[in-house]
């Protein structure tokens, strides 16, 4: 990988090189590329017309709307939380900081189904707040608020975990200078910190959004699967698949694949624009 023309002792023989690249490409092809290709082939099995028609189905359109609504609510909530948490953690010293960071990471290791269940136990009819909410006619479980809450849970660490190391790496000198020159906290944030973290924030929002639109396990538990009402796109894929409507299921799945591919494309672009984004391990 060096620019030197001389063969380095760290260079591998050509056959090793070919074998390693070959195995890596085959692995990625079998595990990642072939599944993607399967989705598009199955979606287009009866032609583009049938696929587009499946997406125009009222239930499919309702699922798309609900998924967009959920992401539009969950992502800003997590962006606000991520900014607060990273400001407190990266710009200040306090006891229990590493415990706080660990707790923010908790949703990464909790099964989405367990997360969904926990919301049922708090907000469901048999849950802590169930009777109180019922008396006031507020529906959270088996309704949109529950879906948004479950989505906020599973995507909770995404933006905070992107911003904390970035803001820690940038230190506090610039903010301290701004404050000592008389800038208020908000002015300091918007004029000094924000320009430094905007790419990292965008990167976190991008990944958070992909997960928010695609969450299945947690949302499945709290949604109640009411067709056209509490069905998100991933849940709609499941319903159509279980009804053996493969063109329909794979058409909605193909739309979600496009979302994933666009996400990966934008992510690669962001990493190119801002080389340290997402590769801050060194």
């Amino acid at each position: 990988m060096s620019t030197a023309k001389l063969r380095s002792a760290a260079d591998d023989p050509a056959w090793v090189k070919a074998a390693v690249i070959g195995v890596a490409v085959l692995f990625v092809a079998a595990m990642l590329v072939a599944p993607l290709a399967t989705v598009f082939t199955q979606a287009l099995a009866k032609g583009l017309g049938a696929s587009l028609q499946a997406l125009h189905d009222p239930d499919a359109l309702a699922a798309i709307r609900l998924t967009l609504t959920t992401a539009a609510l969950a992502v800003p909530i997590n962006a606000a939380f991520g900014l607060c948490a990273s400001w407190a953690i990266a710009k200040h010293e306090f006891a229990g900081k590493s415990l706080l960071i660990t707790l923010i990471d908790l949703p990464f290791s909790v099964s989405p189904v367990v997360a969904g269940l926990s919301y049922v136990l708090v907000f469901g009819l048999q849950g802590w707040l169930g009777p109180w909410l019922e008396a006031r006619g507020i529906k959270i479980i088996f309704a949109t608020p529950g879906i948004v809450l479950a989505t906020v849970f599973v995507t909770f660490p995404f933006i905070a975990r992107e911003l904390i190391p970035l803001m820690q790496a940038q230190g506090t000198d610039e903010e301290e200078a701004a404050v000592s020159l008389g800038a208020s906290g908000l002015t300091t944030f918007f004029r000094v910190t924000a320009p430094n973290i905007r790419w990292g924030l965008l990167y976190g929002v991008l990944l958070c959004n992909a997960r928010a639109m695609g969450e299945f396990g947690a949302v499945s538990v709290v949604s109640g699967h009411i067709r056209g009402v509490t069905d998100t796109m991933p849940l709609h894929v499941e319903i159509l698949y279980n009804e053996y409507d493969f063109v329909g299921a794979f058409s909605v799945a193909a739309l979600l694949c496009l979302l994933a591919v666009v996400t990966l494309g934008l992510k690669a672009l962001l990493e190119r624009l801002q080389p340290q984004t997402g590769e801050r391990g060194h």
């Binding site: 695609g214 299945f216 991933p234 698949y241 994933a260 990966l264």
Partner: peptide
């Protein structure tokens, strides 16, 4: 990074 970006249900049916 595809498994991070692809919804799990889509991965499942695929």
């Amino acid at each position: 990074d595809l498994p991070f970006a692809l919804p799990t249900a889509v991965a499942g049916v695929a």
